[in-house]
Design a binder for these strands. Structure first.
Lengths: 134, 134
DNA sequence: TCGAACCATCACATTGATGTGAGGGTCAAG
DNA sequence: CTTGACCCTCACATCAATGTGATGGTTCGA
């Protein structure tokens, strides 16, 4: 499929698809005329990239992570250097922190909304502390 | 406390503390000499801001959210317009999506790491789909 | 009184993720 | 053959979150 279709199917501007390619997040074959030719698989891939970006990960990290998230990853383990594994562990922990922080604050918002709309103010004030971002 | 101490205690560059103030995320009194004078409470506040920023929320949104997250929020409900409540709901849902996406991908990384280090490859390949970011 | 260590504002630079447009090929349908 | 809808590659603009430095005021201890 060409870039226009991928763009429509993923809701992603063409500009960004080219950008993701430039950042080595996706690869595209080229038709003889030079047009990008995307695999069907790219649809999921792009959605995943957008999700990770939206979750706050930079492309640099996503590029590292993606190879481990490939669907048939049972087959070939990429060349996993110790440094790379350490980086992954670190990123996993950062993501956990992020999740906790997000959940805490989201719940606070939800609680506030419930209180405002339910008419009964929350009984106990809750203290919020974001995860330490060292 | 002055900006230096707040900077140290929160691990945040002074530049950013001034920036957060410019974005109306924190407020500082001024000493007669013009120095910023921060309340003790600002320490938590700044940590929270950093957590939210790190979680991917822009300052514009954080500014909207923060008033609802104040500790003694049992006392005075801010002027909650319907539009504001709707915005909060929307943001709450976005945060939920974000959380789900992060968890999915984090678990995939964790599973990969476990597999690599445990020596036994994962038995079932899992398909990952990020939350639709409309 | 002088210097070190604070603080202030202002302003320009950078980085990552994007927007936008110019200038120019490809190709199918009319 | 021409037109419209694609595609290409630059390349510059923007926006938010930061870095960095210039220039100068305040405070305090040696």
């Amino acid at each position: 499929m060409r870039i226009g279709e991928l763009s429509e199917r993923t809701g992603t501007p063409r500009r960004l698809l080219r950008y993701y390619e430039e950042q080595s997040l996706i690869i595209a074959d080229r038709s003889p005329n030079g047009y990008r030719d995307y695999d069907e698989f790219c649809v999921d891939r792009v959605m995943q990239i957008r999700g990770l970006l939206d979750a706050g990960l930079p492309t640099r990290i996503i590029k590292q992570i993606l190879p481990c998230l490939n669907k048939p990853r049972t087959i070939h383990f990429p060349d996993a250097t110790p440094e790379m594994l350490a980086a992954l562990e670190h990123e996993r922990d950062r993501m956990t922190e992020r999740v906790n922080c997000l959940i805490r604050n989201r719940d606070a918002i939800a609680e506030y909304l419930d209180a405002v709309r339910g008419g009964n103010p929350p009984s106990t004030a809750r203290t919020l502390e974001p995860a330490g971002t060292h």
